[in-house]
Simulated assay, not measured.
Amino acid sequence: MWFVFAVGSSVFAALTSILAKMGIEGVNSNLATAVRTTVVLAMAWGMVFLTGTQGGIGQISRRSWLFLILSGLATGASWLCYYKALQLGPASKVVPIDKLSVVISLVLAALLLHEQVTPRSALGCGLIAAGTLLMVM
């Protein structure tokens, strides 16, 4: 089931890039990010209430709160940078660079989470990095 959600994430991320590029024309990138974030916030809380999981908020540990807050800050910084890049550059070059996050995530997962890097995943990351270079040059 995780695979279905991962594919959905990929499709919606692609739509996000194209729709953002179409919508950001003539709009300050920070303002555009704030509008997008407001929609995401409403949608996320809507899902919490729709699924009846709001009662779990009191069960979140301090450690989880810390890392969820840090993740939120990283997300905000990423979105602000992404929208500014989309405003200034072509989506066909911004998006591949943004997807280098796959390579960075694998490295961080190995260093911080002690996840195993297999020869296959290392090769895949190398190909993503090489493909990104080919696309943006």
Rank of each mutant, 00 (worst) to 15 (best):
M1T: 11
W2H: 11
W2P: 12
W2V: 13
F3C: 05
F3K: 08
A6P: 08
A6Q: 08
S9M: 14
T16K: 12
I18V: 12
L19R: 08
L19A: 14
A20K: 04
K21N: 11
K21H: 09
M22D: 09
G26T: 03
V27T: 09
V27L: 11
V27D: 10
S29A: 10
N30R: 14
L31V: 11
A32G: 15
R36L: 07
R36K: 08
T37D: 05
T38L: 00
T38I: 05
T38R: 02
V39P: 04
V39D: 04
V39G: 01
V40A: 07
V40T: 05
A42R: 01
A42L: 08
W45F: 15
W45R: 11
W45S: 13
G46E: 09
V48R: 01
F49A: 13
T53N: 14
G56D: 00
G56Y: 02
I57M: 10
I57L: 12
G58P: 01
G58I: 08
G58Q: 06
I60N: 07
I60S: 05
S61R: 10
R62T: 15
R63I: 12
S64M: 07
W65L: 13
F67L: 03
F67E: 05
I69H: 15
I69Q: 15
G72A: 01
G72C: 03
G72M: 02
G72N: 00
G72K: 03
T75K: 14
S78E: 11
L80D: 09
L80P: 09
Y83H: 13
K84P: 05
L86P: 03
Q87T: 15
L88H: 06
L88I: 04
P90G: 09
A91G: 05
S92L: 12
S92K: 14
S92I: 11
V95A: 11
V95S: 09
I97D: 01
D98T: 02
D98P: 02
L100I: 06
L100R: 03
V107P: 01
A109F: 02
A110R: 12
A110F: 10
A110W: 10
A110I: 08
L111Y: 06
L111T: 04
L112Q: 12
E115R: 12
Q116D: 14
Q116H: 15
P119G: 13
R120N: 15
L123D: 05
L123Y: 05
G126H: 00
G126E: 06
L127M: 08
A129P: 07
A130S: 09
L133N: 10
V136K: 10
M137Y: 15
